[in-house]
Amino acid sequence: MRRKQTDNTQESVRTSHLVSKLALVVVGMFGFGFALVPIYDVFCEITGLNGKTAGRATYDAAVVEVQEERLVTVQFTANNNAGMSWQFHPMVNQIQVHPGELTEVKFYARNPTGMTMIAQAVPSVVPFVAADYLHKTECFCFNQQTLAAGEAIEMPLLFYIDQAIPDGVSKLTLSYTLFDVTANFLNSSSNLSAK
């Protein structure tokens, strides 16, 4: 090589600096891919996109003011995810509530199969803007449901509508999809505490 030796060393130092920086970018972007998961969750929570409802809310009758003059219709639907064999439906299809009023409804579930199964209900609200204003103080969706063969259960849901719900929303739909998660728990019992 006719390039001077010093040039070569300088060059390889520069190259290894650059390569380390680029490798850092690669590692960073790999991490960013995973960071997208919580970012997406937070984004959906803030904007109410996807109809995601928040977790358990508290209800303090002394503080929450009931708006007697306003009525909001709440509809309930229940679906089974593909392959889920339970009977699953709301016991009332729709009710009218005043914002701020704590209301209880029940959902019915029965396991018609011959084996014990574990299910998880996942909620979603439309219109999406209403998702932030539906507060659940008690919900069967906060836990998995285990039903023995042939067992039936009435599952409670306690909720209230936030008084700040936009005027334009007079009707909202709370939908539950029931997933069979039995296999997850057979595979890894450590997951029992999840969610």
């Binding site: 972007m29 790999f30 891919g33």
Partner: peptide
């Protein structure tokens, strides 16, 4: 280098 690691992540 910006997006292949994201594919690896997914």
């Amino acid at each position: 280098i910006a997006v292949m690691p994201v594919l690896a992540g997914v």
